[in-house]
Nucleic acid binder design. Structure first.
Lengths: 372, 372
DNA sequence: GAGATGCTTGAAAACGTATCCATGCGAATG
DNA sequence: CATTCGCATGGATACGTTTTCAAGCATCTC
């Protein structure tokens, strides 16, 4: 058999070694392009033809161009991934999970960092649309007004770690085991008054915030704490709701404070909280950046942990063990969340994906102590 | 003027609202597709035509499909980004820098996590090739044997944070100010013996490891330390070389140990180092994961920092301040490294990009003390 | 006024692939 | 043997864009 390839293996390497196309393979194998396409995408072909095509393709080290395929099927493969901030270790873990799943599927991932800004998020959605990437897994910053258009444009979206800020926070009963799906999130479509609001549902992969927060609060109450504060950030709506529920009816509103996404803001919120309410004895933070801020603010104000104030941080991150005392945390499986979300977004279409609730775990280390 | 668009704004929203194409715009504006293309990509056109096309395009909210454009110009826009591990805060910072630059250029970023594995890295290169993404900024795990093919395939690659493992470590004179470019990296082409090895050069954006390490070592020596160890990981070749140089001629080889990328390995290496050489009085770690491991291992062995052992960690990460004592670090501008690398990879072609060396800074906190 | 020059414009040709459809052929069925 | 069926095959088309090319037209120059 004679291969008349593009001179790739000549003694003198051609500067213009264009990548082989399907046409080159077809010619070299003496078949039509349709046959090559079929062989390579698993269609039917006679054994000898298949073998020949495969051999030629390997010899030319032909790789089908995603460009042609994408244009033909009017969609780009792979998925988008939007996280608020890659500097936050938790989102790093989540991203690693997504990447692991994507790699095993051979799919590319295009990354966007939203900075917790709905506007940037909307821009990024626009970019995916332009790229015809029709799958995205997102830690949403904006509400329905940014996601309804994406869904209407035909994108498959899966939320991870959070729900959009204006979604109802009434998570399913905490009696659900982690293996059971939660009811799909209902998003209200942001349409003009004339048309009735249509419910739009998007699957989500979430940690069981409610159980996690409740366990932490119970733990603190068991240690005798009564004035427990919550330090939250963007996207911690479900967590603060769970906190309110766990604390019980008369929740001291001064003990629930919010920061924006930045570290400065987190520090300011923590410091302000400690100063305005020196009587508080315990703090639960809604994320690791807030936890970091709380430790820093406490140290700055000469509050000792856990003697003066007990601390429970959401997210288990490697450095939680480095603090002294090591931080007691509500661990959520960041990597798993990402992996499962990627699975969902890839499986969508074949199966109707349902949401997933993953378990949290209270890891008791040294940052909580008995009252006084 | 009458717009006869695709019924997108009809009272009843069509389920099949296909996205408007350039053809739709052309027809609705009564011009040819070529004219629309020209107007939208800044070509010349008469003012009235331009205005009309723009109006129609806005009305149909037309967005040019990247698919068509990519196929036409045989290249996908945007860039790839390869980092070893997004769980490492430093690479999170670097990624944020890349994303910031990419966003301002409106370019997508496809992300890959290599896990410090050359094989995975090679696979990811293959994926970029398939996607016709011809620009990549990489924290390289493999050596020339994985990068030479990418370059030969016509990719524009920029290294960040490291050079390939088999590159010569002789960084340029440390007298270079940070604003001056360093000589481009020479990569030896991995060709068969017959053909002479051709030098291949790739621009890189690096921190001035040499100055950083030297400053740290001098600082430790100034405190009286003589038995200083270095704890390195993958890609820390330049740092260990700088360490050797800074320490001077007879370097105790037992005091230079390496781990692989994993946290377990880092801990094992740190613990082994402390146990095998209890006489060491100071440690410099080549990265923050190693620093974390060193703190953990020291605590486990009841070595107090800085009383029993002084510690300088490469990378300034938010949690360095949280440790007690807070960690003295060699700070490198992770975000800037990413941003500059993205600039380089985008500018390539117009200007011949040259490498960049960014300054490091020794941030003295509390993890180093005088000998005994 | 004839020719040259500049600008605007649209038809058409790619780019590399997947898929529809018609063709041809051998086998199975009547 | 005639017909049908199934299967392998290749030609042709479409996907949405950019770019080339030639044509049309108005203005400028000698």
């Amino acid at each position: 058999m004679v291969f008349q390839g593009g001179g790739k293996h000549d003694g003198i390497v051609s500067m213009e070694s264009r990548r082989a196309t399907i046409k080159d393979v077809a010619e070299a194998a003496g078949v039509g392009v349709a046959t090559v396409s079929r062989v390579l995408s698993g269609g039917s072909a006679s054994p000898e033809t298949r073998e020949r095509v495969l051999a030629v393709a390997a010899h030319l080290d032909y790789r089908p161009s995603a460009l042609g395929r994408n244009l033909r099927q009017r969609r780009t493969g792979g998925m988008g991934l939007f996280v608020p901030d890659l500097t936050d270790t938790f989102y790093g873990q989540l991203a690693e999970g997504v990447l692991a799943c994507a790699r095993s599927a051979g799919e590319p991932v295009v990354l966007g960092s939203t900075g917790d800004d709905p506007e940037q998020e909307a821009e990024l959605v626009g970019m995916l649309l332009e790229q015809s990437v029709d799958r995205v897994i997102a830690v949403p910053s904006g509400g329905a007004e940014t996601w309804a258009p994406a869904i209407k444009a035909g994108m498959t979206v899966v939320f991870a770690d959070r729900l959009p800020s204006d979604a109802p926070f009434d998570a399913p009963s905490d009696r659900d085991s982690a293996s059971r799906g939660v009811a799909d999130l209902m998003l209200l479509d942001g349409l003009p008054p004339a048309s009735r609001a249509r419910p739009l549902d998007v699957p989500a992969v979430l940690a069981d915030d409610r159980a996690g927060i409740r366990t932490a609060v119970r733990y603190l109450r068991g240690l005798g704490h009564r004035r427990i504060a919550f330090l939250g950030g963007p996207g911690h709506g479900r967590r603060v709701a769970a906190f309110r529920e766990a604390v019980g009816a008369p929740v001291d509103e001064e003990l629930v404070v919010f920061a924006t996404g930045s570290r400065d803001s987190a520090y300011a919120a923590a410091s302000g909280l400690f100063q305005s309410r020196p009587d508080l004895t315990a703090v639960v933070t809604g994320g690791n950046v807030l936890g970091e801020a709380a430790v820093l603010a406490a140290r700055e104000l000469d509050l000792r942990v856990p003697r003066d104030v007990s601390l429970v941080m959401y997210d288990d991150v490697p450095w939680a063990e480095l603090c002294s005392p090591p931080l007691t945390v509500i661990a959520q499986p960041g990597r798993d969340i990402g992996y499962r979300a990627a699975e969902l977004v890839l499986r969508a279409g074949s199966r109707r994906p349902r949401s997933v609730l993953l378990p949290t775990e209270l890891i008791v280390r040294g940052s909580c102590g008995p009252l006084h």
